[in-house]
Amino acid sequence: MERVASATPSPIAHSVRGLSDRAIAWVFVAPTIFLLLAINIFPLIWTIQLSFTNYKANRIGREVKNVGLRNYERILTDTDIWLNMQATAHFLFWTIALQVLIGFALAWLINKKFKGNDLWTTIIVLPMMLSPAVVGNFWKFLYQPQIGLFNYIISFFTGVEPSSFQMLGQVNLAPWSIVIVDTWMWTPFVMLICLAGLRSIPDYIYEAAEIDRASKWRQFWTITVPMVMPFLMLAVLFRGIENFKMFDLVVQLTGGGPGSTTELTSINLKREAFEKWRTGYASAYAIILFVTVFGLASIYVKALNKVKER
């Protein structure tokens, strides 16, 4: 007994004994709180503050003037920015719609008990595991008008000359080229979540429905869809937030062009902040985006909880 007790270095034992439980709890939580303040809260507050000034981060010595709400006013009345917003909304809508439809359909097929469905799952999930930089780069090759496989395949099915259209270079096609790549890359994610939802429905519910003489069609709409819905909405939330700040793929593929047709708000914001160095203006822009996402997300989460409670 004696020897075991003395094996604990006495100064530490002593000082620990001197602390109350509450104090010890604070000691453990403090690093997290500190990091949270340093990395999230402080920059946020600083950004809010900067958004009311004409500060430029590349001109350290310059006098900083308070401009009030001027930055906000300029952003919200800028027609170009509204166009960026529209491009973002278009991108969000179509990526989410396509990913949900295809992802759910794939999950539904994979969930059928057939041989080798594990292998198929692995294959389908692969795109998600690649780096966006890599994906962007090789889709650039696929979209190449002369040698690209994508153009070739389209021409094979439609008979259009492969070099007659440029997915990345044409104003009407460029937004779709990004939608296609994002869908290719992230549909597996939606599929996985839907699959989790489908697997959470026990077989006996379908058995009961069989006995109750519900057709397969009715089983799908009255059992499968409502029970997968919370999962599906969660997937939409994740994809929505991710795609609102879509950056890497677009930079790789079009860089925002041609013109500014694929300039999503995040690209636009990066330009303002780190190419034009209008830090105060960009801060206001960031705050506006933050409030938008936050607002949309909280409305959405409310809806999600409603569905879950049903």
Partner: peptide
């Protein structure tokens, strides 16, 4: 198929439709 046989069954493990109300469960068949 079970539907063609037209049988009603009370399952040992209940097998209710968890997302429906009791009323809708009873009305389902």
């Amino acid at each position: 198929t079970p539907a063609q046989r037209n049988v009603a069954m009370v399952f040992q493990q209940y097998s209710l439709y968890p997302h429906l109300s009791v009323r809708d469960n009873l009305a389902f068949p």
